[in-house]
Structures are given as structure tokens and as C-alpha cells.
């Protein structure tokens, strides 16, 4: 698709500068910043991951691959990894369903100023501090917290519904963090679908579930999938939500890695675990981008 737009765009800019100049100009600041703030540190970390211990003090350093065998040497890591993937899956799935439905409701059931207000209200929590947001959930979910009190007020004789320090609590916190982003990406995908297309389908005899499954979801699919990947990837690396909301059950790859840096002071292991995680993520991304290309390529 971009290749089609290029000739017209190029025409406009052609008089002043060749296109590669402007492309470079657009990309340079971001990738310059990324190399300074991310790639350089990552490269250092990559080196660390092959060292036998944290490079501090005078002790000689040897290079080794043993940290990359962690999953074999320490089988409990496999279980943690599985839990982490499960957490990512649940969060992504919940976000996908809620985000899509909310976006659908925005597009089909609201108009004008009300819709704009709702969009802003949905986006606002996204800009609050992540740590603060997660911490607020502890106050909502814990025993004698907001929800628990509300529940006791409604049903005084029933037991507690506090779910702090559980997997559900982690997923709730993560969903809360990523839902606004997912609603907006789904909204953008849905709002571009012409009403007349839905009208045409209805006139041909389609009821709402046919419209949903045959028209709306296929047309929004690229947005849905890229949104899912961009939720899943950071979620499986997260450690703040698992730690604060999960307590003892909140051991994930993210927290294990964090522990290596802040508690165990085993940077090489932490680094090698992160790069293993990155490899898994890239594999997932590669799979989905393949599907995406086939899905949106059309006649190509």
C-alpha cells in the first residue's frame, strides 16, 4: 500500500529534495535516540550475558554460554515462563475482546461531541503514571479495600471478594494499563469502515453476527493483530504489575529478570534471560507479521 502513495508524494517533494533525504531526516532523530538510549545499552547487556559474573571489582572475567542454558539447568524457570505466557495471553485476549467491543460501541452507538468526550476520557488514564496506576489497584482489590467494602455494603453476610495477590489481579492491572491503547487502535480500524458497507450487507440479508464476523472483524483484522502483538510483547516482559498485584504468585519472567539485577546481582543471567525472552517475542512477531502480510496483501 505505501508504494502506491509514494509517486504522488514524491512529486510534491521532488522539486526541492530527493526523497531519501527527507526519509533520512524523518528517521534519523528517532534511531539516533534509540542507539544512544537503547541499542548501546542493549549491546552492553548482550556482552554481559556471556560473562561468568557481573563485571564489577577486579576478579577476572571469563566468557561462557552457560546462562543461556538456564532453562535446562533450572527447570522451575520453564514453569515461570509458561505462567508468563499465560498471563500475556489472558491480558491480550481480554484487551482484544473488551477493546474491540468498546470501539464498536463507540462507532455504532455514539456520535459527535459525546463520542469525542468518551475518546478523551478513555485516553486520559493512559497518561497517568504506571506505578501509581498499579498501586491504586492494590487499594481497590485488597482485603478491606474499595471493592471489598462495596461488596460488604451490598451483601453484608457474604465472604470477602478481595483478589489482591492473585493472577487475576495481575491481569486486571495489566488490562487496565493497555486497554485504552487497544480501544483506540480498534476504534481507528473500525471508524474507517464506511457505513454504507454495513448497510449494503444488511440489505443483502446479513444480521449482526454475519456483519461482525464477515465484515467488521476481517476489515479490522490488521489493526486487531498489530494491537495484540503490541500488547502481548510488553506484557510478558512486565514486572511491576506482577510484583505489586501478584505478591507471591506474581513470579514472572519479568520479575525473575528484575531480581537478577536488583537482588541477586547476577547481571549476566538477567541479561541472558531477557535476550531469550526477546527471541521468543521476535518469533511470535515474525509469525504474525507473516499472517498479516498474507491477510492484507489482497491480490498480491
Amino acid at each position: 500500500m505505501p508504494s502506491k502513495a509514494t509517486p504522488q508524494r514524491a512529486l510534491k517533494g521532488a522539486r526541492i529534495l530527493p526523497q531519501w533525504v527527507s526519509t533520512t531526516a524523518l528517521l534519523l532523530p528517532a534511531y539516533g535516540w534509540l542507539s544512544l538510549a537503547d541499542f548501546l545499552p542493549l549491546l552492553t547487556m548482550f556482552l554481559f550475558s556471556f560473562m561468568n559474573k557481573t563485571p564489577m571489582g577486579k576478579a577476572p572475567i571469563e566468557f561462557t554460554l552457560r546462562h543461556y542454558r538456564a532453562f535446562i539447568d533450572q527447570p522451575y524457570l520453564v514453569k515461570i515462563a509458561a505462567n508468563t505466557l499465560l498471563m500475556g495471553l489472558w491480558t491480550t485476549l481480554t484487551c482484544a475482546v473488551l477493546g474491540f467491543l468498546a470501539a464498536l460501541a463507540l462507532v455504532r452507538c455514539t456520535t459527535g461531541a459525546r463520542r469525542e468526550t468518551l475518546l478523551i476520557l478513555i485516553l486520559l488514564p493512559f497518561w497517568t503514571n504506571g506505578l501509581v496506576r498499579v498501586f491504586s489497584w492494590t487499594m481497590v482489590l485488597r482485603e478491606n479495600g474499595f471493592l471489598d467494602n462495596l461488596w460488604h455494603w451490598i451483601a453484608p453476610t457474604a465472604g470477602s471478594i478481595a483478589i489482591l495477590y492473585s493472577r487475576e489481579a495481575i491481569v486486571i492491572g495489566l488490562v487496565h494499563g493497555y486497554l485504552p491503547y487497544r480501544i483506540i487502535t480498534c476504534y481507528i480500524a473500525l471508524v474507517t469502515i464506511d457505513d454504507a458497507i454495513i448497510g449494503a450487507a444488511q440489505s443483502l440479508g446479513a444480521r449482526w453476527w454475519v456483519i461482525l464476523t464477515k465484515i467488521l472483524i476481517p476489515l479490522a483484522a490488521p489493526g486487531l493483530i498489530s494491537g495484540a502483538v503490541l500488547t502481548f510483547v510488553p506484557v510478558i516482559g512486565s514486572f511491576m504489575e506482577p510484583r505489586i498485584l501478584g505478591g507471591k504468585v506474581g513470579v514472572t519472567m519479568g520479575t525473575v529478570i528484575e531480581d537478577q539485577f536488583t537482588q541477586a546481582f547476577n547481571w549476566p543471567l538477567g541479561a541472558s534471560l531477557s535476550f531469550t525472552l526477546l527471541a521468543v517475542t521476535l518469533a511470535i512477531f515474525a509469525t504474525f507479521s507473516g499472517i498479516l502480510r498474507r491477510g492484507t496483501g489482497g491480490t498480491a
Partner: peptide
């Protein structure tokens, strides 16, 4: 709408962009 058995044509064509011409007609 879906129970009225009507044919309708819009100014914006309103073809299903993700389906071939034949699938559009077969819908």
C-alpha cells in the same frame, strides 16, 4: 432491513473491500 429483500445501491459503491468481485456478488 435484512428481512425486506431489497436491493440497494449507494453513491459510495459500498463494495466489501476485502472480498473479490465474485465473492461480493455471492454474499
Amino acid at each position: 432491513v435484512w428481512g425486506r429483500n431489497i436491493g440497494i445501491m449507494f453513491q459510495s459503491y459500498a463494495l466489501f473491500p476485502h472480498m473479490t468481485v465474485a465473492s461480493n456478488v455471492a454474499f
